[in-house]
Design a protein around this nucleic acid. Structure first.
Lengths: 319, 319
DNA sequence: TATCCTTACGGAATTCGTAAGCATG
DNA sequence: CATGCTTACGAATTCCGTAAGGATA
């Protein structure tokens, strides 16, 4: 039994039981992968993969029972290398952060700037994607940590920790009726918003679900005329007068967005919690913990360490 | 990185940092072990072992941090092989039970007989030892499970489950004054016992500590004239009239021990709990679970499975 | 017939044990 | 000077990619 065999089996599963793809992913030849898997099956004395003729279809029941062990094994092997590197060259390496656009654009820049200053030897990689993509990048080991507001809690193989809380604001062109009403002290209501064409995030992004739910709870149906993945796009169309924007508070910059007016909407939509996720059972290098603490000062090394050691989630604490 | 290197490092630690012994334990050459360790250190980029000249003294701080990962890695590798065998040949294999004399002699025979009947393909090995030896056999993977009344709870790397509870009896030759007093309805007291020469277990065996503590709590000092590791020896000397025996209830057999009389002592000494221990994180073959259930019917497969999955101990339940 | 897995083969790299060397208590 | 680790070397094994073969949708 060796690691190549285990990697071949894992990759075969990941690539949907296509050994040709698995071989490409592993930068090796296809017959090699085929052989590794066969050797592993021979040594274990069982067929891991269900075959129809020469084609792989899926896992056999024993295969389904053994693959989680293979995953843990390879995870620990990875931990060993990572831990070694953490001692060998504590101040250099690579940090890959998977994050949604909102996070990458508005929440992360400060932390990235500070981290680059304090850890000049660490090469930073920022991977952008939808919340599920963020989660899967962390799960597959392509990212050291993921940052998003949605979806992360749905993956039991991830340990998630709350970073910060935020709310939505409504943005309109300067001089828009809503801005005047707000200036006159008339509080914004959902009913008032529902009467206007809205521009906001796509479903699955940056609290969109909670926006929809807020309207639904009051029996209102909002007319979303345009939806986008990021606030920059939304703001652009708001400037054009296409509609009223609903974006995350952090996405509005008083100094920069001079053509727009923001109206507090924290009483209309629920507070969101942005979370950082790491793979359960993964060894985190010292500078990864540093980055997390830079990004969310409440998440100290000790606290993250305890959450990782805990089996379920360390009891999702308040922030 | 390969498994040989990891095994070499683990064995070097187990053998007290003596590579010659490690090589013997691994059935290989000493230069081989030396090389494996060096290669592992090279690949990880750190020195795992503290050296004085050419001699190994212990682990470096990085080594101490990485060795637990190595242990888990090798444990999972073992799990994989075991799980494979469990599917490949579910009904045959080897079951090694480490137990104390008391368990092997009095508690296990029934379970062993039943298990042999239901699992004729499984070769049974019974390893006898002191409670710490039982614990260490399980920890080192030399035994699949351990059964003892003492010590097992002291090892955090073991998962222990309560099997059954028992108490002590006092044994005397037939016609002894104590037997007459008991027959006359006069309850036995610790003070009465303390006035007689006692024969019981050695410290560290079969509830001896609780016997001593019971006397100490009443400010009494028992005179133990002879102590042994097992009840057979104790009973032999009681027959000779050397003293009064205190043994586990299960060690007295009315039908066999015709020359002796047993006097209930459950009101004098605390109830003992015998436990079964398995290595935390180890995969248990189906027949191992069967054996546990045969031995202690309360410990069903589901219950043991849950206890193994739980991180701490699954909350030591009542039996 | 295109895709995808298996088998066959040969060169290259790795592995491992023996023998010799060297430091330390 | 005995114990214990390292270095050196050569044989044997293992490993892996290329090329050809065969089954299936």
């Amino acid at each position: 039994m060796n690691f190549q065999q285990l990697r071949a089996a894992r990759e075969a599963v990941r690539q949907g039981f296509n050994l040709t793809l698995a071989a490409e992913a592993l930068h090796t030849s296809q017959p090699g992968v085929s052989r590794q898997i066969k050797e592993l099956e021979d040594e274990l004395g069982i067929e891991l993969f269900q075959r129809s003729g020469r084609r792989l279809l899926g896992l056999t029941p024993p295969g389904a029972a053994l693959m989680p062990i293979v995953e843990r094994l390879l995870q620990e092997a990875d931990n060993l290398k990572t831990a070694g590197a953490d001692f060998a060259e504590a101040d250099q390496g690579t940090l890959t952060v998977a994050a949604t656009h909102s996070q990458a654009r508005y929440a992360l820049p400060g932390a990235v700037r500070d981290f680059r200053g304090s850890h000049p030897g660490v090469a930073l990689h920022l991977q952008q994607g939808s919340p599920p993509q963020v989660a899967e990048a962390v799960l597959a080991g392509r990212a050291d940590l993921g940052i998003a507001t949605e979806a992360l809690a749905d993956y039991p193989e991830l340990v998630t920790l709350p970073c910060y809380r935020w709310t939505h604001v409504v943005v309109v062109p300067r001089g828009h009726a809503l801005a005047d009403e707000a200036a006159a002290g008339r509080p914004l209501t959902l009913a008032r918003l529902a009467a206007l064409p809205l521009i906001t995030y796509e479903p699955g992004y940056t609290g969109r679900r909670q926006i929809d739910e807020a309207f639904a709870r009051e029996g209102l149906k909002a007319e979303v005329v345009l939806q986008a993945m990021d606030a920059d796009v939304i703001k652009t169309y708001v400037e054009l007068g296409i509609g009223v924007g609903v974006i995350a508070t952090m996405a509005f910059d008083e100094a920069r967005d001079t053509t727009l007016a923001a109206i507090d909407a924290r009483h209309l939509f629920p507070t969101q919690t942005t979370r950082v996720a790491v793979k359960r059972g993964a060894f985190l290098r010292g500078y990864v913990l540093d980055f997390i603490e830079t990004f969310a000062p409440t998440l100290t090394r000790e606290l993250v360490g305890r959450a990782l050691a805990a089996p379920d989630d360390g009891g999702d604490f308040e922030i």
